[in-house]
Write a protein that binds this DNA or RNA. Structure first.
Length: 851
RNA sequence: GGGCGCGUAGCUCAGUGGGAGAGCGCUCGCUUCACACGCGAGAGGUCGCUGGUUCGAAACCAGCCGUGCCCACCA
């Protein structure tokens, strides 16, 4: 070690992540470790596609957890020598990004319509160039070992080519079509949105009962509705065909109040006899159910609410009002005509836009759809056959059930920012052309063409992420080397929005699954158990955590708190990670500053050496297995426990004298253990381990590309583990005895051993002298007979003795009761019974000695 | 309406059939020559409730209570 390094180690008693992280990260990048050559096959390589964050986004806890998990596996596989690629990129996020830029414009007093489409889109690109890389920089702060040289964007040139190819092929297969259909209209973003972008919320509305007079009769048919304003668009009233009350009315007509329209009374199974009066007003233009019923009965579809959320000309005197204003006015008008029979409070669930937060207005509009049933079929099969494995397994069923019920996907959006749908219309001959590249003139009549105004749903482009990022549709070296990818980690909320669609497109286009494993991770909630959300003010900023505690601390903390169930964010776990980083630093200082100049190798000379090596190798085996099965929480906590408890608390304390003596054997063993612990921990805590590695005498190159340890089973040593662990337990009992017997901390107590000598370290760590002579024994702790001395307080010793007797009596009683149970003795497995007998025997003997 | 999950120490969570665990917090004692982001020793749980299965249940089964999430077209 150089004098400078030695001085740095000696003087730095605390690990300071802020001083280390940026420097180390720059070294990794300079080394090119994260930028693999496109060589080898997907089977032998390791690749992961990052769930692309929104360009508008900032790193939140979900990204940080997901990133920590991916990086752990990516780094582990890179260290194993695999050609490893972590694909990075961002999503153009249509609605979100357009909203951000529109907001900016608004501050300048402008609207996108004033700018016009081209200028607006240009403006969004400018915004993207300036702010769009923020989240990528934040991933670097986390230490994520993505390939920053292959960064992709869902709207970059090659990606658009892939999207258009997919659109064209799906269109040619007849899966994509254009139709007038009921959609979820989001008045906030002025666009249709898909079913998956809708969230239902409980809302208290009023339920109105309205009398519809039956034509040529004194009868009325009373219907119930929460949206009286839509009655203006009613085109039928429906009753259940089995409903005796209305059997005679089916086929007759009612006269729609306020409007005067004559509309039929029809019979449809959808109507629930029990609900309200059993008569349902049918508004095919403004209600998804009524739309379906309307299509079944070929009813007229009238729209009285426009895309702006206001009443249209069809609404007559209500035209121009907002839907809410119209509701009041319609209710008033009905009341004035004596048609309003009842009004009562009513709680029900109502769709809201996940994007804008506004209440969805179901409208019929001309949109592009994609049929999903054919695409879903093979995507169901690969999951059924576990070719794509979903972990934890309960999500497999959730996926399959959703896929089996899949419905057409509304893929068009009335936005400007996104992939403009590759369809051109000829106004002269009415031709519609779908093409991957813009056609110059109409191929039929040579007329002028105009392109479809709508853009595609953002998720349409995300769906092809794993292969579009690798250069598909071209046959690129990247695609050949890294597709299919190895695994995907995700939050369950995008299982349908994203994961399912990637499986479908992967099978349809490159013709193979996009990844072999899907790991659905838990959700980190706010400290109080609420959802972490910006709008609720419950978010915790991962970057602040990194600033304060370091990236390793946050990574450790997130992995340690992650689980199969949702968990609350735990500051304590992040601190545990910070403490671990500090402990690693300091234990390493102890070893590195005192070890003799030897090569790291297991060189056991005594039982405690064999013990720590055995524990080390077992930990490597166990932690590796847990990482491979996505059990991150147990993986990091087990590493923590081995390092802190076994290595630091016990082994280092035991071998300090040998280490200070510069003994070659213990130095070699310690350097070996340190090297392996650093490598084992590097995937989860990359910065501190890399920094310490700088000072390790075996260092050749960066730890990021050092071999990941493989457990050496020849070092497993059951006997050594038992000996040392019983020595540890004896040490702990002796210390406890001293403490309770009021012995001064620094005092060494005389004692003798009755029986087999414990390992040597026991006497030193417990501060006993086992060759005591002369005095009388006053207490027994295991095989240790504590001799009388002036360090002892007789009363405290007697009290301690009595306490132990009580414990033993309770134990003996418990054992006797259990073994006295004849059914236990006859039915329990023999080894369990034997164990109980052994324990009882030991307790009885010790009690006898103390009496 | 259907589905999934959770209820274990003051807090956050592990623990799937043989004597209740971790981290934090708390108490007592330590400036012991790696680390006070440290060391040693402790206190603290009828494992939501009620029944059942079993020699044995925190764990398996049933019901109940509480709580969270997902899906769903009942106006």
């Amino acid at each position: 070690m150089s004098a400078g390094d030695r001085q740095k180690l000696e003087s730095t008693t605390r690990y300071d992540p802020a001083e280390v992280e940026a420097r180390i990260f720059a070294e990794w990048i300079a080394g090119g470790y994260f930028h693999p050559d496109a060589e080898g096959t997907p089977e032998e390589n390791f690749s992961v596609a990052i769930p692309p964050p929104n360009v508008t986004g900032a790193l939140h806890m979900g990204h940080a957890l997901n990133g920590s998990m991916q990086d752990a596996l990516v780094r582990m596989n890179r260290m194993r020598g695999k050609n490893t690629l972590w694909i990075l990129g961002t999503d153009h996020a249509g609605i979100a990004t357009q909203a951000v830029v529109e907001k900016e414009l608004k501050k300048e007093g402008k609207s996108r319509h004033e700018l016009g489409r081209e200028a607006f889109v240009e403006r969004v690109w400018e915004w993207k160039a300036e702010y769009g890389s923020r989240i990528v920089e934040q991933y670097k702060r986390l230490g994520a070992s993505c390939d920053y040289e292959r960064e992709r964007f869902t709207l970059d040139q090659g990606y658009v080519k892939a999207v258009y190819r997919v659109f064209k092929q799906l269109f040619d297969k007849g899966y994509i079509y254009r139709d007038n259909y009921m959609v979820n209209w989001d008045p906030g973003s002025h666009s249709a949105i898909s079913d998956l972008e809708v969230e239902n919320r409980e809302v208290e509305d009023a339920l109105y009962s309205i009398d519809y007079p039956v034509e040529d009769s004194d009868q009325v048919l009373t219907v119930a509705t929460v949206r009286p304003e839509t009655m203006l668009a009613d085109t039928a009233v429906a009753v259940n065909p089995d409903d005796e009350r209305y059997r005679d009315l089916v086929g007759k007509h009612v006269i729609l109040p306020l409007v005067g329209r004559r509309i039929p009374i029809i019979a449809d199974d959808h109507v629930d006899v029990e609900f309200g009066t059993g008569a349902l007003k049918i508004t095919p233009g403004h209600d998804p159910n009524d739309f379906e019923i309307g299509r079944r009965h070929k009813l007229e579809e009238i729209g009285v609410i426009g895309p702006d959320g206001r009443m249209t000309e069809e609404a007559g005197k209500f035209a121009g009002m907002t839907a809410a204003e119209a509701q009041k006015a319609v209710v008033e008008a009905l009341r004035a005509e004596g048609r309003l029979r009842a009004e009562e409070p009513y709680v029900h669930s109502v769709p809201f836009s996940h994007r804008s937060g506004e209440r969805i207005e179901p409208l019929i509009s001309l949109q592009w759809f994609c049929r999903m049933d054919e695409l879903a079929r093979p995507a169901i099969e690969v999951v059924e056959r576990d070719e794509v494995r979903i972990t934890p397994p309960q999500w497999k069923r959730v996926y399959l059930e959703w896929m089996r019920e899949i419905r057409p996907w509304c893929i068009s959006r009335q936005l400007w920012w996104g992939h403009r749908i590759p369809v051109w219309y000829c106004d002269e001959c009415g031709e519609t052309i779908v093409a991957e590249a813009e056609p110059q003139r109409c191929p039929s009549c040579n007329g002028e063409l105009r392109q479809e105004e709508d853009v595609l749903d953002t998720w349409f482009s995300s769906a092809i992420w794993p292969f579009a990022t690798l250069g598909w549709p071209d046959d690129t070296p990247e695609l050949r080397a890294f597709y299919p990818t190895s695994f995907l980690t995700t939050a369950r909320e995008i299982l349908f929005l994203w994961v399912a669609r990637m499986i479908m497109t992967g099978l349809e286009f490159p013709g193979d699954i996009p990844f072999r494993d899907v790991y659905v991770h838990s959700v980190i909630q706010a400290r109080d158990g609420r959802r972490m959300s910006k709008s609720l003010g419950t978010g915790i900023d991962p970057l602040e955590e990194i600033d304060v505690h370091g990236a390793d601390a946050l990574r450790f903390g997130l992995l340690a708190m992650s689980s199969t169930q949702d968990v609350r964010f735990s500051d304590a776990k992040v601190q545990q990670g910070r403490d671990l980083a500090n402990k690693l630093w300091n234990a390493s200082r102890l070893i590195l500053l005192n070890a003799a100049d030897v090569s790291p190798a297991p060189r056991p000379t005594c039982v405690e050496d064999r013990w720590i090596l055995s524990r080390l190798e077992r930990t490597i085996a166990s932690v590796t297995e847990k990482l491979e099965t996505y059990d991150f929480a147990h993986a990091v906590q087990e590493t923590y426990s081995f390092f802190w408890r076994d290595l630091c608390d016990w082994y280092l304390e035991i071998v300090k004298p040998r280490l200070y003596d510069g003994e070659a054997e213990v130095s070699a063993t310690l350097l070996y253990a340190l090297e392996r612990v650093l490598a084992l921990l590097h995937p989860t805590m990359p910065f501190v381990t890399e920094e310490i590695w700088n000072y390790h005498p075996a260092r050749q190159g960066h730890l990021a590309v050092h071999a990941f340890p493989v457990a050496d089973e020849s070092l497993f040593d059951e006997a050594a583990e038992q000996d040392v662990e019983s020595g540890i337990r004896l040490t702990q009992r002796l210390r406890a005895w001293r403490d309770l017997a009021g012995v001064p901390v620094g005092a060494t107590l005389p004692a003798v051993i009755d029986g087999v000598d414990p390992p040597d370290f026991v006497a030193r760590l417990a501060r006993f002298e086992f060759n005591g002579v002369g005095a009388e024994p006053v207490a027994s702790v295991g095989p240790v007979r504590v001799l009388d001395s002036d360090q002892l307080d007789a009363d405290a010793v007697a009290e301690r003795l009595e306490k132990r007797r009580e414990e033993l009596r309770a134990e003996v009683e418990r054992g006797e009761r259990k073994l006295g149970n004849e059914k236990f003795v006859s039915k329990a497995p023999a080894e369990v019974v034997e164990e109980e007998r052994g324990k009882l025997e030991r307790y009885r003997n010790e009690l006898a000695e103390l009496s």
